[in-house]
Amino acid sequence: MVENAKTTNPELIGKLDEKLGYLSDLRQAILVQDDRLVFELLARKKYQTQVLQQPGQSNDDLAEMVANLKPQLSHLLANKLIAYLSVAFPFFYYKEIDEGVYQIYFGNWWDRRSFGYLDVLDVKFVFDTTEYQKLTDSVALSKDNQRLNTEKITNLTKQNEHLQQLVDGQSQRDMQKGSLRAQIDEVTNARQGLFANGKLKEQRDELVAHLEELQIQDEEAKNARTQIIENNDQILFYSKEDTILSYEHKSIMEKFGDFEAFETAVAHLYTAYLATLIAKEEKGAFGDYE
């Protein structure tokens, strides 16, 4: 019966054997904690082309079988990977928010930013694009001794100075308004007289325009206090962001010397990590990072 099936369906049996072999290899690799082999088994083509730099052959159809085990596999492989990363990128911290899902935090300072995710199975940082953009922008600006929010803070500060002047100028405006009203009355009365002429009307319009201008300023001054407080909150928010960005930039510089080196290291994380695993394997030392 068995003999029959093998001869009648050699192709199918072969495929099943291949699947069994794959699962058995993966099982064994996990048992002996051979993370390198696990990575290879999960994405053979990537491993062969990028690590071995050979033409590769995809095993995606086999890897597909364990797709629903990804959370557990990720959790397992994260152990050594994060230990490695804590040396290679000492400023990143990770929090497992769900099985095998690792959120990245940048730094250990106050109100550090959540910076994206660590894709363990792909050995790749998936940075939050908005946050990463802010960092690259601030790095570019730092070449001119500028910070990301310098301009915004300057504008808000100027606005506050202007608002403060409006508030401070209230009593002076009140005096001016009084005097303008008196003058308007005077001109109005004169106009009603015999010698009313165009020049007086012109003068009156000018006085009224000036009065209206002061009244607009009064309106502005009324809301100034609230606006100043709101602006101060904004300034604080931007200053904090600048402070955080400067810490981020500083920690990258301390480890990598310049930002480009950091970007390169991020781009080559997979090959660098796998190379490390290979090197450990050759020394015959597994689990060094544990």
């Binding site: 300072w109 106050w110 109100d111 604080l236 402070t243």
Partner: peptide, 20 residues
């Protein structure tokens, strides 16, 4: 809430790192 943020901002120029 801003009280702590203010201290954080003030600590940076003094080369002191404020942490949670």
């Amino acid at each position: 809430s801003q009280i702590l943020d203010k201290l954080f901002i003030a600590s940076a120029p003094a080369n002191v790192l404020m942490q949670p």
